[in-house]
Design a binder for these strands. Structure first.
Lengths: 198, 198
DNA sequence: AAAGATACGGACCGTCGGTCCGCTTTGCAA
DNA sequence: TTGCAAAGCGGACCGACGGTCCGTATCTTT
């Protein structure tokens, strides 16, 4: 019924905006000093077009984030182990967190932009909702876990964009160190004692 | 040598501003819709005065936060157990985190304002620095902890203002439930298996 | 080809953090 | 007490940003 397909210039402009925003965020020192006008300019597009396509700044950032996250989401939903659904929880949870950490390391500025969108709690995005639900269900299948819901939140909190930025960007912690630290922490929480760095 | 004492109207106005800001934040639905002009008005003071006294919005929020946090800080620095310095780490760490959680529950809007100040990473405040250092040193004295620095960050991340707001405000999780969940999580991380809710 | 729908784009608007500067208050000293 | 800097005041003012509006250009359909 409804659901008409968009005009072709619309899709072209949308793509241009996304691409422009991506490079602008990547090059910026802080997401805050990338303005909508900047993005519109860089994309060769009017500001109105941006807002028509994405609603508002948050919408644009979310769309961009979604695009970048897509491969990972696919790997999680229907990929091979250790990310895919065939993996047993005790192994999958650490793998998921590690993947998420790597993603945020590779997209620091973008993740920062998403989580720092001011009033909008990062907890209201459905990206977050999805990760949380997935993690909670996995944790639920693990023994001795008192509250999977809260534990999932707490584990995800350890990969918050601004924390990652603080450690990796400002304090220069090397990537592998960070991964090892998160892995150790995760193991601790899961009660998996033996695990060490690969 | 320098370090002259401020004039008395200055101190009076400063206090008025702090008080006004406090109630305004407490009554607001989101910290973002409390503007500097609002605060100035409510305090019966010019906007310029606000900026002279606190530098900028962030400065005001930090000052206010510091004021509110003072009692807790004192209790931690030189109070009786379980918060004070005489307490052994395994007992003190959970107590600290619980106290911090309670503080954020009691000052939700303020904490949200502080952590959500946009560009300024919450990790650059010296409030955070202090808590992190304290926690790290305590964890350092505990056995089997691979990386006290990261673990401290991760534990603190579990009490982030927006997470607390999400759980307590939006999803209506009762205070005691939250405290129990955090306690359980902390125990898990510390490797204290026996602990249950009081 | 013609018409109707859809999208474009940049001038425009309201708001907010922050600055500026002529005026008032305060505190010190004679 | 009176005089007089210096410190502080406050609100008009500014620049920037997110978001809107609407006359115009472009696409799609018949």
């Amino acid at each position: 019924m409804p659901e008409r397909k968009p005009r072709k210039d619309a899709t072209r402009n949308r793509a241009a905006a996304l691409a422009a925003a991506d490079t602008l965020f990547a090059d910026s020192r802080s997401p805050e000093d990338v303005t909508m006008a900047d993005i519109a300019d860089a994309a060769g597009v009017g500001k109105g077009t941006l807002f028509r396509a994405f609603g508002d700044r948050t919408g644009l950032i979310r769309a961009l984030y979604g695009t970048r996250l897509e491969p990972l989401a696919a790997a999680v939903e229907s990929g091979p182990p250790p990310l895919g659904p065939a993996t047993p929880p005790a192994e999958r949870v650490p793998a998921l967190l590690d993947a998420l950490l790597c993603f945020k390391l590779d997209n620091r500025h973008l993740a920062l932009a998403l989580e720092g969108t001011g009033a909008d709690s990062p907890y209201r995005t459905d990206h977050y909702e999805q990760w949380h639900t997935l993690l909670r269900d996995l944790l639920h299948r693990l023994p001795d876990l008192a509250d999977p819901g809260f534990t999932a939140h707490a584990l995800l909190a350890a990969t918050r964009a601004d924390l990652v930025e603080h450690l990796a960007g400002e304090r220069q912690t090397p990537r592998e160190d960070l991964r090892a630290q998160l892995a150790a922490f995760t193991a601790r929480v899961l009660g998996t004692p033996g695990t060490t760095t690969p």
